[in-house]
Every structure is written in C-alpha cells, then in structure tokens.
Design a protein around this nucleic acid. Sequence first.
DNA 1: ATCGTTCATCGCAAATATACGATAGATAAG
DNA 2: CTTATCTATCGTATATTTGCGATGAACGAT
Lengths: 115, 115
Amino acid sequence: MAKAKAEEFTPEEINLADIAKALSHPARIKILKILASLNICVCGKIVDELPLAQATVSQHLKELKRVGLIKGEIEGPKTCYCINTGAIKKAYDDFQKLFNNISKECKISCKTATK
Amino acid sequence: MAKAKAEEFTPEEINLADIAKALSHPARIKILKILASLNICVCGKIVDELPLAQATVSQHLKELKRVGLIKGEIEGPKTCYCINTGAIKKAYDDFQKLFNNISKECKISCKTATK
DNA sequence: ATCGTTCATCGCAAATATACGATAGATAAG
DNA sequence: CTTATCTATCGTATATTTGCGATGAACGAT
C-alpha cells in the first residue's frame, strides 16, 4: 500500500517527501529548467522540448502544479505556465534544512566508528 | 510506462530525479533524520522508530543505499547503517544548483508578464 | 457558424512502488 | 550443537505512476 500509518510522520516530513516526489522524474526537472530559462510564461513549447506526448507532458505539468512549484493560467486557447518563485524558495529552504541537519549531526561514519 | 525515451534527458537530470525519488517517501526522510540524530552507526533501532514492519523498513534502507545516501555494513548478526556524508553533500549541492538556476533565471512571473 | 489550434482529461495498459508475512542466512550466546 | 536475535529477501497483494491515443472544451480566425 502506498500509505498505511502515515499519520506517524510529521507534516514536514510528508510535505518534503511530496515535493521530492514532484522532482522525482527527469521530465519534471527539465520542465522546471525550461520554464526558468525561457524567463517568461510559456504557453506550449514545452512539449516540443520533451520526448513525450502532449498528454503526458500535461500530466507532469499537473503534478508540478499540484505541489505548487509552478503556476498555470488559462489564457485564451493556450495555457500559461511559469515558475512559482515563492514555492521554489520554500522547497530550497526545506531541502537545505534537511541536508544541513543530516550533515551537521552525523560526524561519525561507519568506517571510523563501527562500534 | 515508467521509461520511454529517457535517453533524451541528461545524466544530471536523471541522477537528480533519482535522488529525489529516494527522498520521496516520509519514511525515508525520517530514516535519514534518525541516522543523523543518533550520530553513530545504528544497528536496528530504526524499525522501532517507524510505524512500519521490519521487512518494509529494510526495503526503504535498501533504496537509500541504492542511491548512495547511506552506507551499510554487515556486522555480525546485525547490520550497521550510517549516513554517507559525501553523498549528502553532493545531493545538497545538486539541489542547490537546480533551485538557484530556477530562481535566478525566472524573474518574471505570470502575474506581471502574462505574455 | 465552421475550422484549426491548444491544452486538459478520460480510459486504458504496463511498469513501479509500497507494504507485509514468511522464510532464510548469519552469528552470538548458551 | 541448539537457540535466540537480527536483518535481507522472497512472494504476494494492492496502489500509484507513467505513458499515450482519443476525445472534449475553449477560443481565435475566417
């Protein structure tokens, strides 16, 4: 099962895992890069940049939108997507916090201190 | 399908997505925190800290080991796990690079520049 | 009103991920 | 050697993810 006693985890752990899940596919990483590099709302060219069908890309965009990393606005027949800078910053901070805690606290490795 | 034309993505994108995948479950985030907080190789107590069966925890540990975020050494009847500090640092750097690129390059949001 | 463009969604298939009980292997203790 | 402990792995069930074709909705252009 994908969930069982998840209530045993903290909201922070669950939230960070969710963001990580959104980043856990090369296509979604690439989408973020594309959106960022175009430096402006993109209304469709994303599909052309990926080796995936339009329906699939749409799903990846939906997933990124679900976790809030990007924003999308319908604009006539097109849809305008762009980076949600605030959410990116928060994700950045959260990952930084996690990694910092891990690196800071663990000073003894297996090799040097195998009980 | 989980993969199709993945060769269209760069090794960096694939690798970072893989690390993210390893972090995409609350249990694995928690495992990293536990390993870090105990500050020394842990040989079993991890299961007690999680609302999951031993077999399941073992699988999560395997996944973290697969991407290199932790190291494990068999030690008698027990197995000693600990953080792989180097891999954590590299993951930290990679995420930082990604987020920095995204934040830096995208200065115009939908609201301010809708085409 | 009709056509073409753009994108989301549905429905389906295949692949993965998640979870757990049962079992096996390795070793320490007796 | 036998037993107890610890952990990896196997087998299985279920859920989720990924991918794509087909379809539909929205809109601009004609």
